[in-house]
Structure formats: structure tokens, C-alpha cells
Amino acid sequence: MGSRLTIAGRELAGLRAEKTILLAIGIQLFIAAFSSFLVVGLVSMYDPGALDGAEIEVAAAGDAVDDLERAAAEVDGTSVTRYEDVGAARSAFDRNAADAIVVVNRDDGGGISAVVTAPDATVETTVIVVQLRELLRTYELNERGERADFLDESPLPLPERTGSSPYFTFTYTVLIPVLVFLPVFISGSLVVDSVTEEIDRGTLELLRVAPVTLGEIIDGKAMAAVAIAPGQALLWLLLLRANGTPVANVPSILVLMTALTALVVALAVAIAALAPDRRAAQFLYSVGVLVLFGGATAMAGGPANAVARLAIDSVDATTTALVVAYTGIAVVAYAGVRHLVAANGFED
């Protein structure tokens, strides 16, 4: 164990020379420390319609404007002004008296067509388009509700709108998982760089001359990479809590992310053994991580979903079982990769 700790300490001491890694950690620190301010701007990109106070003026024309006006009364920040024809609506739009144009007409079959004109590539375009989308969605729902009486069979009831805060959704489903998993990716990248650099410089052979085995060398490097990940995640979560974002089940989150770190580190060691060239190894590692986490995220019990449920204290037996399962998979994966590398070594 002493030799492993010595190698781990050597790895940690060498992190000061990794400028890219330090920059990545610095960016995470900035996001976590100023999360209460940054989340407003990030939510505007994640869900532009969440911004309060957005108001648009719509110039409307056509023979179905009455229903559009009723729909606008249900959408906050949207007002509709009726114009005699499309030309008058266009004129209002051109002189900036309206933010958008909506022309709604009924056809002979009872259908409704809507032609929308919005500004092209302006700062306000995104907010205008989001508001128009909400207006037309409400218009459609109202029409469906009114026409339900003429159907032979009753349609399925529409689900009630939850009205959940986009800030809450963004924080717990995007921000917290990102801050938790970025250290995982960084740790794996550190191992890839460390092992391939040792092979490239020939220092791995020097280490093997010392009274340590190849397995102990790999263990030491892995210990350093795994150790720094939960420390980073804990700091980010504490900073989020200091900024008014409570996070529940922090120990369970750290156990889960440590297990995932060990799994990613095992992947990194395997890739470094198969492709000792640094550039090739980093490329393969990036692809491998994307496939690994992309596939896991596609599942209902993916790591991101598990972290979000733990953070909001919505834990059930399935979530706990997932944490245990990921831990077991990580232990088996690292033990298997470590055994293979220790038995077969690295090929220069």
C-alpha cells in the first residue's frame, strides 16, 4: 500500500503542470460559486420562455382572429391586435408597431391554417418565437376542446399543466449532474495522459525497475484520479448550497460518482494499454465515454437521472439499487482491467 500511495502522491503533485485540467476545474469552480447568478442566463438558453417580463405584440389578420385573441388572453405577455388585411398587418410589422404577424384563416373543410412571420436573426427573435409557440399551442388546445362535442367518441382528457419552475428543472436535471460528472471525465482523461506519457517518455520502464509491480503502478495512478473526483464534487455541491440551492443525499451522490469515476478510470487504463499513443488514446477515450454515458443516459435509470432524484430527495428502492449496481459494476470492471494489464503489461 505504501508504494501505491507514493505513486498517487506523485500523480497529485504533477497536476499543477496540467494547465488544461486546472482550467477545466477553474471553470467548474466559477459555475458552482456563482450558480445563483449564472442560472438565470443558462435558463434563458435552456428554456427562453421561462424569462419573466417578456411581452410581444402580434399583428393578426384573417377570418379566425377572434379565436386567436381569446387564446392570447390566456398567454401571459402576449397581446394580439386585429388588422383589416394582411397588408395592414405587414405595415405595422415593418414600422415596428408589432413584433410578429399571424394570419389565421379557415378553409372549407373546417381546418385552420396559420402563417407566422417573425423577425430574422435579431436578439429578441428567440423570445418572440417561444411566445408565438405558446400562443399557437393554446389556440390549438382551445380548438380541440371546442370540437370535442362533435366527435362520435370522447377524446382522452388533456393532462393538466404542471407549472413547474424551469429554474428548478434546469438546476436539478442539468446543472447538478454536469457539475457532478465533469470531474469523472477529467479523472479518466488524467489517467489516459499519465499512462501514455509514461510509455512515451520511457519512464514507465524506470518505475518498473523500482521495487513495485506494474499493478501497483496502475493502482497508484488510479487512486490519485479517483480521489480528486469526489473532492471536487463535494466542493461544487457545498457552493451550490451556499448559493441557496439545497442538495439532498450528498453522501449517496458522492458514492455514485466515485463508482462512475472508477468505471471511467478502468476504461481509461484499458484504452491506454491498447493504444499507447497519446492522441489516439485521448480520441478513443472521448468516444468511449460518449458511448458509455450516452447509452446509460438513454436508460430510465441512467446516472444523470439517479443524481437528479437523489438531489431532490426523490429516492426509492430502484434508485438505491442503481447506486449499488453501479458500484458493483465499477469494482468488477476495474478489477478485470487491472488484472489484464498487470498480467500482460503495456506494449510500446
Rank of each mutant, 00 (worst) to 15 (best):
G345V: 04
I112T: 11
Y139N: 07
R279T: 14
G336E: 06
I271H: 01
A54I: 15
R309T: 02
M1P: 14
A229V: 05
T319H: 04
A248Y: 12
E69I: 15
A342M: 01
L256A: 07
V86I: 13
I21H: 12
I112A: 05
V337M: 09
R137M: 08
M223D: 13
V212S: 11
T169Y: 02
A222E: 05
A148I: 06
L214M: 12
G49Y: 04
A59E: 10
F37N: 10
L284G: 10
D76G: 14
D219W: 04
V291N: 00
Y167R: 03
V289W: 02
A281Q: 00
A333Y: 04
I329E: 07
L175E: 03
V174N: 06
P183Q: 02
F283R: 14
L256M: 14
A17N: 11
T81N: 07
L136F: 08
L238K: 11
K19A: 14
V180N: 08
L182M: 13
F34G: 07
V209Y: 11
E11W: 02
D66E: 15
T320V: 10
V195H: 02
V116S: 04
P166I: 00
A114M: 10
L204N: 07
T297P: 01
G336W: 14
S113V: 09
P157I: 02
L190K: 07
P166N: 02
A275S: 11
G244D: 06
D149A: 11
D76T: 13
E216S: 14
T213K: 08
I253M: 06
L135Q: 09
R10H: 11
A311I: 02
